[in-house]
Amino acid sequence: MIRLENLRVGFSQGGGAQGGSAQGAGEERIVLNDFNLSVPKGQTVSLIGSNGAGKSTVLNAIAGSVPILGGAIFLGERECGGDPEWMRALTVGRVRQNPLAGTAGEMTILDNLALASRKGPRRLRFAVTSRIARNLADKVADLGMGLENRLRENVSKLSGGQRQALTLLMAVLAEPSVLLLDEHTAALDPANADLVSELTKRFVRQYSLTALVVTHDMGRALSEADRIVMMHAGEVVADVEGEEKDRMAVADLVALFRKARGSEYAEDRDLLR
C-alpha cells in the first residue's frame, strides 16, 4: 500500500536564474503542492500526464531520491518520508527509463543478481554459492531471453532490452511490496517493450505487488492497469478505475488530456488580464 498525504516537493532554482538571488539558494519552485494519492495493496496504477507534470517527481519522492518539503509518505503502515533512500528500498523495487540506471555494467549478470537477491546490509559470506547460482539461473531462464547462458558476462554487453528485463527481475527478486516503474519500456523497440511489459504483468501478479507505472503509452495504460491517474501541473486531474476505466478508449484519455491542457491556457489568460 502507498499513501501520499499533502505531499509537497519543490526544487530550489540554482544558479540565481530567477532575478539576482543574493541569498544563495534562490526561491523554491514547487512541483507538487498538497498532493494526495492512495494506492491499495495489490493494485496497479498507471500514472499518465504531459511532460513536466510531476510524474517522475512523485515516484522519486516515494523512493526517497528527492527530499520532501512537507506532507507524509506511507509505505504499508509506516511513515517513511524522512527515511534515506536505501532504507525505503527495503520495501520498494524500482526501474527507471534508462536501461543503464539499475544495473552495475562492469559486473557479471550473476553478481548483479546476487546483489539484488536480498535487501538489507551485506554480510561476510559468499554471495554466489552453487546453490544460489542455480536458483538465479532458473529465474533468468524464466525471462525467456537466453541470458541463463551468459551469466558470467558483464551486464554492459547486453542490449538495452535485455538489460531492462534484467533490471526488472532485479527489482522484484527480493520481493518488495511496492514496485515503481518510470517509463521503463520507453527506451525499447516495440518488440522488447512488449516483452518487458509482459514480464511486468507477470511479476506484479506473481509477487502480488502494489505498482505505480508511469507511461506515455495510453493503450498500455488502459490495458495493463487497474486504475489510471492523470496528472497535470503537479495535480491529479483525472482518476478512473473499475468499470469506468474499462469503458474508456484511448481517445477518451486524449480528450481528458486536452481538457487538462485547456485549463492551463485559461489560467494563462487570467494571468495576462
Partner: peptide
C-alpha cells in the same frame, strides 16, 4: 560484491537496501 557495485553504479547498491 557490494563494494564492487558501489564503484560502478551506486544506485544498484541503494536499490539493494544497503
Amino acid at each position: 560484491i557490494g563494494m564492487g557495485a558501489l564503484g560502478v553504479n551506486e544506485a544498484a547498491v541503494v536499490q539493494a537496501g544497503v
